[in-house]
Design a protein around this nucleic acid. Sequence first.
DNA 1: CTCTCGATGTTCT
DNA 2: GAACATCGAGAGG
Length: 197
Amino acid sequence: MHFPALQRDFYARPSLEVAQDLLGCLLVRQLDSGQTLAARIVDLEAYIGQEDTACHASKGRTPRTEVMFGEPGHAYVYLIYGLHHLLNLVTEEAGQPCGLMLRALEPVHNCEVMREIRPVKGRNLCNGPGKLTRALDVDRQFNRWDLCSGQQLWVAPRPAPLTEPVGRGPRVGIDYADQKDREAPWRFWLEGNPWVS
DNA sequence: CTCTCGATGTTCT
DNA sequence: GAACATCGAGAGG
């Protein structure tokens, strides 16, 4: 099984475009054991620049947000609530601090290995941003990771055209943001897909 | 199924 | 010292 890595030019575009194009693509994780896990992206949110008060980068350039200001095609991984790692993909040209947070995945390849890493029943496996990082063994080690390297963690193109329609709406869990940002329809998902969070 | 609540550590004020 | 891009356990319906 071979999964080619999306290259930097894919990520170096307007975040809302990249977000929609990523639906149905495969997040791929190659473990140290050599096993390769793959899961379809079915739900994600865009965080767009310093003007977006929901985006961490709206606080400015700090050690934490530095990676979002850098080259597209890198991973931004951080710890939330002291417990959960969340995975973002950096988009747009360097200097534009933007990223896409993955909210849910549909397991496709080596699902049983994911369930060894995260032994839960049914759709609980990766239908949430903190769950999917757990299931794919992604943590802060992958902060600043180059997703275009095709090693350990990357994204592969859609294996097949989308069969589900695309849903769109406001983002989740950002009560602290300004009203215009709370209402911005910057979350995208595959309508009717059972793995959506 | 729903709701409530506590956990836990990094970041920024 | 507060807030936080969440999860899971436990109680109740």
